[in-house]
Design a protein around this nucleic acid. Sequence first.
DNA 1: ATTATCTATAGATCTATAGATAATGC
DNA 2: ATTATCTATAGATCTATAGATAATGC
Lengths: 207, 207
Amino acid sequence: MRVSREKAAEHRDRIIDAAGALFRAKGFGGIGVADIMKAADLTHGGFYGHFASKDDLVAQASRRTMDRAAANWTKLVEAAPDNPYAALLEHYLSPKHRDDPGKGCAFAALGNDAARSGKIVRKAFAEGLAPLLDILAKSIPGKSIPGKSIGGKSIRGKSKTVRRRKAVVAMATLVGALTLARAVEGTPLSDELLEAAHRELIGADQR
Amino acid sequence: MRVSREKAAEHRDRIIDAAGALFRAKGFGGIGVADIMKAADLTHGGFYGHFASKDDLVAQASRRTMDRAAANWTKLVEAAPDNPYAALLEHYLSPKHRDDPGKGCAFAALGNDAARSGKIVRKAFAEGLAPLLDILAKSIPGKSIPGKSIGGKSIRGKSKTVRRRKAVVAMATLVGALTLARAVEGTPLSDELLEAAHRELIGADQR
DNA sequence: ATTATCTATAGATCTATAGATAATGC
DNA sequence: ATTATCTATAGATCTATAGATAATGC
Protein backbone atom coordinates (compact mmCIF):
# COMPACT_ATOMS: atom_id res chain seq x y z
CA MET A 1 0.00 0.00 0.00
CA ARG A 2 2.32 2.70 -1.15
CA VAL A 3 1.30 6.34 -0.51
CA SER A 4 2.36 9.59 -2.17
CA ARG A 5 5.63 11.30 -1.31
CA GLU A 6 3.61 14.03 0.37
CA LYS A 7 1.64 11.56 2.46
CA ALA A 8 4.86 9.81 3.46
CA ALA A 9 6.28 13.10 4.74
CA GLU A 10 3.09 13.65 6.70
CA HIS A 11 3.41 10.15 8.17
CA ARG A 12 6.98 10.92 9.19
CA ASP A 13 5.68 14.05 10.88
CA ARG A 14 3.04 12.10 12.74
CA ILE A 15 5.63 9.60 13.98
CA ILE A 16 7.84 12.37 15.37
CA ASP A 17 4.88 14.06 17.08
CA ALA A 18 3.59 10.83 18.57
CA ALA A 19 7.09 10.00 19.79
CA GLY A 20 7.52 13.48 21.26
CA ALA A 21 4.50 13.00 23.48
CA LEU A 22 5.04 9.32 24.32
CA PHE A 23 8.71 9.76 25.19
CA ARG A 24 7.88 12.58 27.56
CA ALA A 25 5.12 10.56 29.17
CA LYS A 26 6.95 7.24 29.48
CA GLY A 27 10.66 7.88 28.92
CA PHE A 28 12.88 6.91 26.00
CA GLY A 29 12.98 3.29 27.12
CA GLY A 30 9.42 3.16 28.38
CA ILE A 31 7.80 3.10 25.00
CA GLY A 32 8.52 0.84 22.02
CA VAL A 33 8.70 1.48 18.30
CA ALA A 34 5.58 -0.59 17.75
CA ASP A 35 3.49 1.51 20.13
CA ILE A 36 4.76 4.77 18.65
CA MET A 37 3.82 3.57 15.18
CA LYS A 38 0.42 2.48 16.44
CA ALA A 39 -0.11 5.97 17.89
CA ALA A 40 0.75 7.37 14.45
CA ASP A 41 -1.72 4.94 12.83
CA LEU A 42 0.96 3.00 11.01
CA THR A 43 2.39 -0.48 11.31
CA HIS A 44 5.53 -1.42 13.15
CA GLY A 45 7.61 -2.49 10.13
CA GLY A 46 7.27 0.81 8.30
CA PHE A 47 9.30 2.59 10.93
CA TYR A 48 12.72 1.80 9.51
CA GLY A 49 11.90 3.39 6.21
CA HIS A 50 11.66 6.71 8.02
CA PHE A 51 14.37 6.45 10.67
CA ALA A 52 17.76 4.76 10.88
CA SER A 53 17.09 3.56 14.41
CA LYS A 54 15.06 4.27 17.51
CA ASP A 55 17.89 6.51 18.72
CA ASP A 56 17.57 8.54 15.53
CA LEU A 57 13.93 9.15 16.39
CA VAL A 58 14.82 9.99 20.00
CA ALA A 59 17.15 12.76 18.79
CA GLN A 60 14.70 14.13 16.21
CA ALA A 61 11.70 14.02 18.52
CA SER A 62 13.68 15.73 21.29
CA ARG A 63 14.77 18.49 18.98
CA ARG A 64 11.25 19.13 17.77
CA THR A 65 9.85 19.12 21.29
CA MET A 66 12.39 21.73 22.36
CA ASP A 67 11.88 23.90 19.27
CA ARG A 68 8.17 23.93 20.07
CA ALA A 69 8.93 24.90 23.67
CA ALA A 70 10.97 27.92 22.54
CA ALA A 71 8.14 29.00 20.23
CA ASN A 72 5.64 28.55 23.04
CA TRP A 73 7.72 30.55 25.51
CA THR A 74 8.09 33.34 22.97
CA LYS A 75 4.33 33.43 22.52
CA LEU A 76 3.77 33.51 26.29
CA VAL A 77 6.29 36.31 26.73
CA GLU A 78 4.81 38.40 23.93
CA ALA A 79 1.29 37.94 25.28
CA ALA A 80 2.34 39.46 28.62
CA PRO A 81 4.60 42.43 27.83
CA ASP A 82 4.09 43.99 31.29
CA ASN A 83 5.41 40.98 33.17
CA PRO A 84 6.65 38.20 30.90
CA TYR A 85 8.64 36.56 33.70
CA ALA A 86 5.55 36.08 35.85
CA ALA A 87 3.72 34.62 32.86
CA LEU A 88 6.47 32.05 32.30
CA LEU A 89 6.58 31.07 35.97
CA GLU A 90 2.79 30.82 36.19
CA HIS A 91 2.68 28.57 33.16
CA TYR A 92 5.64 26.38 34.03
CA LEU A 93 4.82 25.80 37.69
CA SER A 94 1.10 25.10 37.21
CA PRO A 95 -0.45 21.81 38.43
CA LYS A 96 -1.72 21.41 34.88
CA HIS A 97 1.85 21.28 33.58
CA ARG A 98 2.85 18.87 36.32
CA ASP A 99 -0.04 16.54 35.61
CA ASP A 100 0.49 16.22 31.84
CA PRO A 101 4.18 15.54 31.18
CA GLY A 102 3.43 14.29 27.67
CA LYS A 103 2.60 17.85 26.64
CA GLY A 104 5.15 19.63 28.80
CA CYS A 105 8.81 20.51 29.21
CA ALA A 106 11.27 17.97 27.81
CA PHE A 107 13.93 18.82 30.40
CA ALA A 108 11.66 18.09 33.34
CA ALA A 109 10.29 14.94 31.68
CA LEU A 110 13.45 13.50 30.14
CA GLY A 111 16.45 15.07 31.86
CA ASN A 112 17.48 11.79 33.46
CA ASP A 113 16.93 9.89 30.23
CA ALA A 114 19.04 12.40 28.31
CA ALA A 115 21.84 12.08 30.87
CA ARG A 116 21.94 8.35 30.20
CA SER A 117 21.80 8.80 26.42
CA GLY A 118 24.61 9.22 23.92
CA LYS A 119 26.38 12.38 22.90
CA ILE A 120 23.99 13.13 20.03
CA VAL A 121 20.98 13.30 22.33
CA ARG A 122 22.83 15.32 24.97
CA LYS A 123 23.96 17.78 22.34
CA ALA A 124 20.36 18.12 21.14
CA PHE A 125 19.33 18.90 24.71
CA ALA A 126 22.06 21.53 25.07
CA GLU A 127 21.04 23.17 21.79
CA GLY A 128 17.41 23.08 22.87
CA LEU A 129 18.17 24.61 26.26
CA ALA A 130 20.05 27.66 24.92
CA PRO A 131 17.04 29.54 23.40
CA LEU A 132 14.99 28.97 26.56
CA LEU A 133 17.76 30.57 28.62
CA ASP A 134 17.81 33.53 26.23
CA ILE A 135 14.07 34.04 26.58
CA LEU A 136 14.32 33.76 30.35
CA ALA A 137 17.20 36.24 30.53
CA LYS A 138 15.24 38.82 28.56
CA SER A 139 12.10 38.35 30.63
CA ILE A 140 13.69 38.67 34.08
CA PRO A 141 12.62 42.02 35.63
CA GLY A 142 15.14 44.78 36.40
CA LYS A 143 16.57 47.29 33.98
CA SER A 144 19.66 46.10 32.21
CA ILE A 145 22.91 47.95 32.85
CA PRO A 146 24.96 48.17 29.69
CA GLY A 147 28.19 49.48 31.26
CA LYS A 148 30.11 48.22 34.28
CA SER A 149 28.49 48.02 37.67
CA ILE A 150 29.43 50.47 40.41
CA GLY A 151 31.67 49.14 43.12
CA GLY A 152 31.29 45.57 41.92
CA LYS A 153 27.61 45.65 42.79
CA SER A 154 24.71 46.97 40.78
CA ILE A 155 22.05 48.70 42.83
CA ARG A 156 18.91 48.72 40.77
CA GLY A 157 19.61 47.11 37.41
CA LYS A 158 21.34 43.95 36.27
CA SER A 159 24.42 43.49 34.16
CA LYS A 160 24.34 41.04 31.26
CA THR A 161 26.38 38.55 33.28
CA VAL A 162 24.07 38.69 36.27
CA ARG A 163 21.01 38.47 34.05
CA ARG A 164 22.41 35.40 32.34
CA ARG A 165 23.26 33.75 35.63
CA LYS A 166 19.83 34.44 37.05
CA ALA A 167 18.26 32.91 33.94
CA VAL A 168 20.36 29.75 34.22
CA VAL A 169 19.48 29.35 37.88
CA ALA A 170 15.79 30.12 37.30
CA MET A 171 15.73 27.37 34.67
CA ALA A 172 17.37 24.93 37.09
CA THR A 173 14.82 25.85 39.76
CA LEU A 174 11.90 25.42 37.37
CA VAL A 175 13.09 22.04 36.11
CA GLY A 176 13.99 20.85 39.60
CA ALA A 177 10.70 21.95 41.16
CA LEU A 178 8.62 20.31 38.42
CA THR A 179 10.70 17.12 38.44
CA LEU A 180 10.43 16.79 42.21
CA ALA A 181 6.74 17.74 42.22
CA ARG A 182 6.11 14.86 39.82
CA ALA A 183 8.34 12.45 41.73
CA VAL A 184 6.34 13.04 44.93
CA GLU A 185 2.99 13.55 43.19
CA GLY A 186 0.11 12.55 45.44
CA THR A 187 1.74 13.96 48.60
CA PRO A 188 1.45 17.50 50.03
CA LEU A 189 5.09 18.15 49.11
CA SER A 190 4.14 18.21 45.44
CA ASP A 191 2.03 21.39 45.59
CA GLU A 192 4.44 22.91 48.09
CA LEU A 193 7.31 22.59 45.62
CA LEU A 194 5.42 24.38 42.85
CA GLU A 195 4.18 27.15 45.12
CA ALA A 196 7.52 27.72 46.88
CA ALA A 197 9.41 27.96 43.59
CA HIS A 198 6.83 30.35 42.19
CA ARG A 199 6.90 32.64 45.18
CA GLU A 200 10.66 32.61 45.64
CA LEU A 201 11.46 33.24 41.97
CA ILE A 202 8.99 36.08 41.70
CA GLY A 203 10.32 37.66 44.89
CA ALA A 204 14.03 37.10 44.45
CA ASP A 205 14.36 38.55 40.98
CA GLN A 206 12.10 41.57 41.32
CA ARG A 207 14.55 43.10 43.77
CA MET B 1 24.17 -24.57 48.01
CA ARG B 2 22.29 -23.27 50.96
CA VAL B 3 24.02 -20.63 53.17
CA SER B 4 23.45 -19.60 56.80
CA ARG B 5 20.63 -17.29 57.77
CA GLU B 6 23.23 -14.64 58.56
CA LYS B 7 24.88 -15.00 55.15
CA ALA B 8 21.50 -14.81 53.46
CA ALA B 9 20.80 -11.50 55.19
CA GLU B 10 24.18 -10.25 54.02
CA HIS B 11 23.34 -11.31 50.48
CA ARG B 12 20.08 -9.42 50.69
CA ASP B 13 22.04 -6.38 51.80
CA ARG B 14 24.43 -6.72 48.89
CA ILE B 15 21.54 -6.94 46.42
CA ILE B 16 19.98 -3.73 47.76
CA ASP B 17 23.32 -1.89 47.65
CA ALA B 18 24.13 -3.08 44.14
CA ALA B 19 20.65 -2.09 43.00
CA GLY B 20 20.96 1.32 44.67
CA ALA B 21 24.02 2.15 42.59
CA LEU B 22 22.90 0.51 39.35
CA PHE B 23 19.45 2.09 39.41
CA ARG B 24 20.95 5.55 39.88
CA ALA B 25 23.44 4.95 37.07
CA LYS B 26 21.06 3.36 34.56
CA GLY B 27 17.51 4.04 35.70
CA PHE B 28 14.91 1.64 37.10
CA GLY B 29 14.26 0.17 33.67
CA GLY B 30 17.83 0.38 32.44
CA ILE B 31 19.13 -2.48 34.51
CA GLY B 32 17.78 -6.02 34.84
CA VAL B 33 17.40 -8.36 37.79
CA ALA B 34 20.05 -10.65 36.32
CA ASP B 35 22.67 -7.90 36.16
CA ILE B 36 21.89 -6.70 39.68
CA MET B 37 22.31 -10.24 40.99
CA LYS B 38 25.56 -10.62 39.07
CA ALA B 39 26.83 -7.37 40.66
CA ALA B 40 25.94 -8.88 44.05
CA ASP B 41 27.80 -12.11 43.10
CA LEU B 42 24.67 -14.21 43.07
CA THR B 43 22.68 -15.97 40.39
CA HIS B 44 19.57 -14.64 38.76
CA GLY B 45 17.13 -17.20 40.12
CA GLY B 46 17.90 -16.53 43.75
CA PHE B 47 16.42 -13.04 43.53
CA TYR B 48 12.82 -14.01 44.14
CA GLY B 49 13.65 -15.61 47.45
CA HIS B 50 14.61 -12.16 48.70
CA PHE B 51 12.12 -9.86 46.98
CA ALA B 52 8.52 -10.18 45.87
CA SER B 53 9.23 -8.42 42.57
CA LYS B 54 11.62 -6.01 40.90
CA ASP B 55 9.34 -3.17 42.03
CA ASP B 56 9.75 -4.32 45.61
CA LEU B 57 13.52 -3.94 45.19
CA VAL B 58 13.07 -0.55 43.52
CA ALA B 59 11.20 0.75 46.57
CA GLN B 60 13.64 -0.74 49.09
CA ALA B 61 16.76 0.39 47.24
CA SER B 62 15.33 3.90 46.84
CA ARG B 63 14.58 4.14 50.52
CA ARG B 64 18.05 3.01 51.53
CA THR B 65 19.70 5.39 49.07
CA MET B 66 17.78 8.31 50.50
CA ASP B 67 18.41 7.30 54.13
CA ARG B 68 22.12 7.24 53.32
CA ALA B 69 21.84 10.70 51.74
CA ALA B 70 20.29 12.16 54.90
CA ALA B 71 23.07 10.61 57.02
CA ASN B 72 25.69 11.97 54.62
CA TRP B 73 24.20 15.48 54.67
CA THR B 74 24.12 15.43 58.46
CA LYS B 75 27.80 14.46 58.51
CA LEU B 76 28.66 17.23 56.05
CA VAL B 77 26.74 19.81 58.05
CA GLU B 78 28.33 18.78 61.33
CA ALA B 79 31.80 18.88 59.80
CA ALA B 80 31.32 22.55 58.83
CA PRO B 81 29.58 24.25 61.77
CA ASP B 82 30.63 27.73 60.60
CA ASN B 83 28.96 27.45 57.19
CA PRO B 84 27.05 24.21 56.73
CA TYR B 85 25.04 25.61 53.81
CA ALA B 86 28.17 26.35 51.77
CA ALA B 87 29.45 22.85 52.53
CA LEU B 88 26.26 21.29 51.20
CA LEU B 89 26.27 23.43 48.04
CA GLU B 90 29.96 22.74 47.40
CA HIS B 91 29.40 19.03 47.73
CA TYR B 92 26.19 18.80 45.75
CA LEU B 93 27.20 21.01 42.83
CA SER B 94 30.66 19.53 42.31
CA PRO B 95 31.70 18.05 38.92
CA LYS B 96 32.57 14.91 40.86
CA HIS B 97 28.94 14.50 41.92
CA ARG B 98 27.76 15.19 38.38
CA ASP B 99 30.11 12.63 36.89
CA ASP B 100 29.22 9.73 39.17
CA PRO B 101 25.43 9.45 39.41
CA GLY B 102 25.65 5.89 40.72
CA LYS B 103 27.02 7.24 44.01
CA GLY B 104 25.01 10.48 44.10
CA CYS B 105 21.63 12.00 44.80
CA ALA B 106 18.64 9.78 44.03
CA PHE B 107 16.40 12.73 43.17
CA ALA B 108 18.73 14.05 40.48
CA ALA B 109 19.37 10.55 39.13
CA LEU B 110 15.89 9.04 39.34
CA GLY B 111 13.37 11.87 39.61
CA ASN B 112 11.91 11.15 36.19
CA ASP B 113 11.84 7.42 36.85
CA ALA B 114 10.07 7.98 40.16
CA ALA B 115 7.47 10.19 38.46
CA ARG B 116 6.64 7.29 36.13
CA SER B 117 6.55 4.76 38.96
CA GLY B 118 3.69 3.65 41.16
CA LYS B 119 2.43 5.25 44.35
CA ILE B 120 4.67 3.14 46.59
CA VAL B 121 7.85 4.42 44.96
CA ARG B 122 6.61 8.03 44.87
CA LYS B 123 5.73 7.84 48.55
CA ALA B 124 9.23 6.51 49.29
CA PHE B 125 10.65 9.51 47.42
CA ALA B 126 8.48 11.94 49.38
CA GLU B 127 9.52 10.36 52.69
CA GLY B 128 13.14 10.46 51.61
CA LEU B 129 12.95 14.11 50.58
CA ALA B 130 11.54 15.39 53.89
CA PRO B 131 14.69 14.91 56.04
CA LEU B 132 16.88 16.55 53.37
CA LEU B 133 14.60 19.60 53.43
CA ASP B 134 14.89 19.73 57.23
CA ILE B 135 18.69 19.64 57.08
CA LEU B 136 18.70 22.34 54.41
CA ALA B 137 16.32 24.56 56.37
CA LYS B 138 18.55 24.39 59.45
CA SER B 139 21.70 25.08 57.46
CA ILE B 140 20.49 28.15 55.56
CA PRO B 141 22.25 31.27 56.93
CA GLY B 142 20.34 34.06 58.67
CA LYS B 143 19.18 34.11 62.28
CA SER B 144 15.81 32.59 62.84
CA ILE B 145 13.00 34.82 64.04
CA PRO B 146 10.77 32.97 66.50
CA GLY B 147 7.96 35.55 66.66
CA LYS B 148 6.10 37.31 63.90
CA SER B 149 7.92 39.43 61.36
CA ILE B 150 7.63 43.22 61.48
CA GLY B 151 5.41 44.80 58.88
CA GLY B 152 5.07 41.54 56.97
CA LYS B 153 8.76 41.58 56.17
CA SER B 154 11.69 40.42 58.25
CA ILE B 155 14.77 42.60 57.95
CA ARG B 156 17.71 40.52 59.09
CA GLY B 157 16.48 37.12 60.15
CA LYS B 158 14.13 34.52 58.70
CA SER B 159 10.85 33.21 59.99
CA LYS B 160 10.27 29.46 60.06
CA THR B 161 7.98 29.75 57.05
CA VAL B 162 10.52 31.66 54.98
CA ARG B 163 13.30 29.30 56.01
CA ARG B 164 11.22 26.31 54.97
CA ARG B 165 10.35 27.87 51.63
CA LYS B 166 13.96 28.75 50.93
CA ALA B 167 14.98 25.18 51.72
CA VAL B 168 12.37 23.74 49.35
CA VAL B 169 13.46 26.05 46.55
CA ALA B 170 17.16 25.45 47.21
CA MET B 171 16.52 21.73 46.89
CA ALA B 172 14.67 22.26 43.61
CA THR B 173 17.54 24.38 42.32
CA LEU B 174 20.14 21.81 43.34
CA VAL B 175 18.27 18.91 41.74
CA GLY B 176 17.45 20.91 38.61
CA ALA B 177 21.00 22.19 38.15
CA LEU B 178 22.52 18.73 38.56
CA THR B 179 19.91 17.07 36.34
CA LEU B 180 20.43 19.63 33.58
CA ALA B 181 24.23 19.57 33.98
CA ARG B 182 24.12 15.82 33.37
CA ALA B 183 21.66 16.10 30.48
CA VAL B 184 24.00 18.53 28.65
CA GLU B 185 27.24 16.94 29.90
CA GLY B 186 30.06 17.48 27.44
CA THR B 187 28.96 21.03 26.53
CA PRO B 188 30.00 24.33 28.21
CA LEU B 189 26.47 24.68 29.60
CA SER B 190 27.12 21.81 32.00
CA ASP B 191 29.76 23.59 34.09
CA GLU B 192 27.88 26.86 33.80
CA LEU B 193 24.81 25.32 35.41
CA LEU B 194 26.75 24.06 38.42
CA GLU B 195 28.64 27.32 38.89
CA ALA B 196 25.62 29.58 38.42
CA ALA B 197 23.53 27.62 40.92
CA HIS B 198 26.38 27.64 43.42
CA ARG B 199 26.98 31.37 43.16
CA GLU B 200 23.32 32.34 43.15
CA LEU B 201 22.35 30.15 46.10
CA ILE B 202 25.28 31.32 48.19
CA GLY B 203 24.51 34.96 47.40
CA ALA B 204 20.74 34.95 47.58
CA ASP B 205 20.40 33.31 50.95
CA GLN B 206 23.17 35.09 52.81
CA ARG B 207 21.27 38.32 52.55
C1' DA C 1 10.51 0.85 -12.08
C1' DT C 2 10.46 2.82 -7.74
C1' DT C 3 9.23 2.95 -3.07
C1' DA C 4 6.13 3.49 1.14
C1' DT C 5 3.99 0.30 3.75
C1' DC C 6 2.68 -4.21 5.39
C1' DT C 7 3.15 -9.04 7.35
C1' DA C 8 6.06 -12.11 9.55
C1' DT C 9 9.87 -13.29 12.09
C1' DA C 10 14.76 -13.56 13.80
C1' DG C 11 17.41 -12.72 17.74
C1' DA C 12 18.10 -10.53 22.01
C1' DT C 13 16.58 -9.41 26.56
C1' DC C 14 13.71 -9.23 30.59
C1' DT C 15 10.60 -10.74 34.57
C1' DA C 16 9.17 -14.50 36.94
C1' DT C 17 8.72 -19.40 38.08
C1' DA C 18 9.59 -24.51 38.47
C1' DG C 19 12.22 -27.98 40.15
C1' DA C 20 16.77 -29.66 41.70
C1' DT C 21 20.59 -29.28 44.94
C1' DA C 22 22.99 -29.09 49.14
C1' DA C 23 24.05 -26.98 53.47
C1' DT C 24 21.89 -25.31 57.78
C1' DG C 25 19.50 -25.71 62.08
C1' DC C 26 15.99 -27.95 64.84
C1' DA D 1 13.12 -31.12 57.50
C1' DT D 2 13.85 -26.65 56.08
C1' DT D 3 15.45 -23.29 52.98
C1' DA D 4 18.93 -20.35 50.37
C1' DT D 5 20.67 -20.81 46.08
C1' DC D 6 21.28 -22.73 41.54
C1' DT D 7 20.09 -24.26 36.67
C1' DA D 8 16.85 -24.07 33.16
C1' DT D 9 13.11 -22.23 30.94
C1' DA D 10 8.40 -20.24 30.00
C1' DG D 11 6.29 -16.30 28.25
C1' DA D 12 6.34 -11.56 27.15
C1' DT D 13 8.40 -7.73 24.83
C1' DC D 14 11.56 -5.13 22.07
C1' DT D 15 14.68 -3.68 18.08
C1' DA D 16 15.62 -4.56 13.58
C1' DT D 17 15.29 -6.95 9.14
C1' DA D 18 13.54 -9.75 5.12
C1' DG D 19 10.49 -10.25 1.63
C1' DA D 20 5.87 -9.33 -0.30
C1' DT D 21 2.47 -5.99 -1.84
C1' DA D 22 0.48 -2.30 -4.26
C1' DA D 23 0.19 2.49 -5.47
C1' DT D 24 2.96 6.39 -7.23
C1' DG D 25 5.60 8.95 -10.53
C1' DC D 26 8.86 8.94 -14.31
